[in-house]
Amino acid sequence: MGRTDGIEVEGLVRKFRGGVTAVDGVDLRVEPGEVYGFLGPNGAGKSTMVLMLTTLLPPSGGTARVAGYDIVKEGPQVRAMIGAALQEAALDNFLTGRDHLKLQAALHGLPRAERRKRGNELLERVGLSEAADRRVRGYSGGMRRRLDLALALVHRPRTLFLDEPTTGLDPQSRSALWAEVSRLARDDGVTVFLTTQYLEEADVLADRVGIIDRGRIVAEDTPEALKAEIGRPSVEVTPANHRERDAVAKILSRFGQEIPSQPETVSVRLDHGAEGLADVVRALDAEDLKVSNLRLDEPTLDDVFLEKTGRSLEGAGEDPQTEEAQA
């Protein structure tokens, strides 16, 4: 097997004490320079997967090579090639951002002169130059994540692992982090393995997405292909007169299968894709049914998740964070 910057995983398994199988025979391949999104609800096994691939947790079975090195037998070589920002940015509250970078650079063996330069460069890049000499204790969630990312990049790794990098962040911090990750992949050719529970994140960032549920990969492809597999868009129609809802539903049923929607509206998955939309409008017009709103919905990764697991991603994990967000 040749040396690559990618990730090759075969039959990886991790069982925990008490019989819980967090990762249950995962195969996957990430090409060099690719951004791979590992999408799944909480407790699906995403973090366990990252811990194994970063050599922090020994697998119970299977093999994996990261940047061409075996994660079990060649731990030190793997660690030299990768950078990782793990869940819950692990920082020392009493150190400043700059202190953190100095420590990290020293541990990676950067020469003294380069340590300072590299630190400044990374602080600049993640937009923390001004906050660099403040203690991390006062950093916001977004700043902590950005510092975490900078620390992962100190030794210019070719492969980057990001475990739920934007969980709990506000939309602005989230897009700032997305921009930086995209830039790394695009300009520096860094291979990125990213876990997320956000569909949008996988959709925006990932070249390819693996959907994981209960320790197994249930679907894997580019976001576009995954959605295309579900394929067809749906149309949602709101009758102007709600008493005509049944009449509208009857006509729409000619174009595809009805799917759940708001009580006042009717949604169907179009049998013949978006091209069928004009026919829908004509048919409604022919019956003289007035419509107050008509919307075409492209399939989302949530539809893919629903299709593959029978559950919606939003409700699949028991995630206190989403509960809070809903409250």
Binding site: P76, A80, E88, A90, D92
Partner: peptide, 15 residues
């Protein structure tokens, strides 16, 4: 450090 994951971060360096 172990609880917060800081230890993991250090473990990933060639330290």
């Amino acid at each position: 450090d172990i609880e917060s994951g800081f230890f993991d971060r250090l473990s990933l360096t060639p330290m």
